[in-house]
Design a protein around this nucleic acid. Structure first.
Lengths: 321, 321
DNA sequence: CCGGGCCGTGATATCGTCAACATCGAGGGG
DNA sequence: CCCCTCGATGTTGACGATATCACGGCCCGG
């Protein structure tokens, strides 16, 4: 039924070990033998049995993805990018969601699946604080405070936020208010930091930020505290969507009365009313680099930290004060 | 280093086979022995080596997910639901995206990973037409025309679309135009069918539908052909977002001049301007049922077909004609 | 002309688990 | 009181791949 190396070996008139060497691209094989084996593999439709190899080598050629939620567009896009990058390197991708049992349990599940390493897409800074990633598991965390135990790949949230705020100030606004993400989120903290930085640069006092939970509904609610603002930097596009509606309901015109900037540049942002000026994150690059870093670590490299730039995309939600 | 059944067996003073029996819930184990083994497992932090089990049994306890894109909110939410349902049944989840190499290649990759079955989330009806799912792989397809080779789980798109259209007609509109999804999509075809059905019910001629590709940008573009309409049923919420902006730009007020209904009820739909009346799909139920059907098939059941209802959620984008 | 090293290849043992069969003891019926 | 049955447990081998060592032949330097 299933074709094993022994079957291929028999047909090619060699030993199973030689088939193994061909399958793994060992240089110590005579070209003629290699050709014969490759033909036999093709004839029989041989495919490696990953479980057998995993048992013997202890390596599964599988990377895990720990993700807290896929409700955010960013995580979904990263998942897709990671999946493609992993496939390109012939790694399988196992996805686990962080459920009620917490991130420890998620790691335990990945461990029992025998993944060689894991990418963590987790909103909370929980990992760095509470969880010792298993020492024998290579980990890459996306958007995390510095930590020597694992590699880090992140968007330059602070620089993006700073540029967004500077853009608003350059339009002549007296100050810029902030509708931030939830406490405990690294990305939210960084974006807030960038905003504060830009205001400090301009010698302005920072108004008290208002916080949401990344959802459009929370963005809507938060606006009740921001009705005096003429410029708002919102920490993500979905909250900006809710904010735009709330502002419209309150009779504030965007961009005539208030300018709004978001963060992420999700695909729909260009179709908001008005089309949203926002900060673009390169989710694809982030995902690809996470996989590169992880595979590097698995194959013996050192943990690294990488930052991907973010840039302001100007649309029609911002105007002169 | 790694804890095997033999280690647990030694500590509990039994044979490895007995540990195996405990781990697999065999009834032929003395309760006292079972307790001793369980304690030993806990003490040592034993976790099964899935690769070894897979090698022996030929089953990986892994299900695959074939997904064309995660750009659509629906697919992302289903992925999350599927991941949780799989974890609850102690199945691992391997995700592959359908890349440039097509769905055949995606199946080949899953096959080499040795998954026991796969859930297919594929926009196109390609699968049914072109691809013979490997006979030894159990498959559940979400939103597919009937096919005896695999199980099918689907939203009742037609009924949802019909209800949405009926809702608009009940408001006194003379007819309802349709901004549909792309050709080749089963869901799009079903939604269009439901819309036609409702118009036929009312004895109306069906206007020519306009098509987009599910993106908000395509929804925006399509509206140029719909400026005369007073009621539009849009095949998904993201296209509705683009349509709302295009209508506003054209000076058409929603809902005073035009009523708009979407499909999906994505989280942001309630924050569109105006909040969108739409048809709610229960993505979580869909994902859970897909896993249930797949596990059933793996464990020896017959292919099934299930339909999940969809219901109209009335918000503020629809009004009396 | 001989010894050592290298190249291509083969033989063997092993990873952790579980199916199949073997064993052992207790209890019940005749 | 013996034998049979059955329940609980142990023993053995195999799944498919590969690490490791072993082997025979060739080339080269001395």
């Amino acid at each position: 039924m299933r074709v094993s190396m022994a079957d291929v070996a028999e047909r090619a008139g060699v030993s199973a070990q030689t088939v193994s060497r061909v399958a793994n691209g060992s240089p110590r094989v005579d070209p003629a033998t290699r050709a014969r084996v490759e033909k036999a593999m093709a004839d029989l439709g041989y495919r490696m049995h990953r479980a057998a190899r995993a048992l013997r080598t202890g390596q599964t050629s599988t990377i895990g993805l720990v993700v807290s939620t896929l409700a955010s567009v960013g995580n979904s896009r990263m998942l897709q990018a990671i999946s493609e990058a992993a496939a390109a390197r012939d790694y399988a991708l196992a996805v686990v969601t962080v459920g009620e049992r917490g991130i420890r349990d998620a790691f335990a599940r990945l461990r029992s699946q025998g993944v060689d390493g894991a990418v963590v897409l987790n909103e909370a800074t929980e990992l760095a604080r509470d969880v010792d990633p298993p020492a024998d598991l290579h980990v890459v965390v996306v958007d995390s405070p510095p930590d020597a135990r694992f590699s880090i790949v992140q968007t330059d949230h602070a620089a993006g936020a700073r540029a967004a705020t500077a853009h608003l100030l350059a339009l002549g606004h007296d100050t810029v208010h902030h509708l931030g993400g939830p406490r405990g989120s690294f990305a939210a903290a960084e974006r807030e930091r960038g905003w504060r930085f830009a205001l400090a640069d301009a010698g302005l006092v920072t108004p008290e930020p208002v916080r949401g939970d990344w959802t459009s509904a929370s963005g809507h609610r938060a606006v009740s505290h921001l009705l005096e603002a003429t410029a708002i930097f919102v920490a993500n596009d979905q909250m900006a969507l809710g904010a735009l509606r709330a502002l419209a309901d309150a009779g504030r015109r965007v961009p005539e009365d208030v300018s709004v900037v978001g963060f992420d540049d999700i695909a729909d942002a260009a179709e908001f009313r008005p089309p949203l000026t926002t900060v673009r994150q390169d989710f694809d690059a982030l995902g690809r680099r996470a996989v590169t870093a992880l595979v590097g670590a698995i194959e013996g490299g050192e943990p690294i930290a990488e930052t991907v730039p973010a840039s302001v995309v100007v649309r029609r939600s911002t105007a002169q004060a």
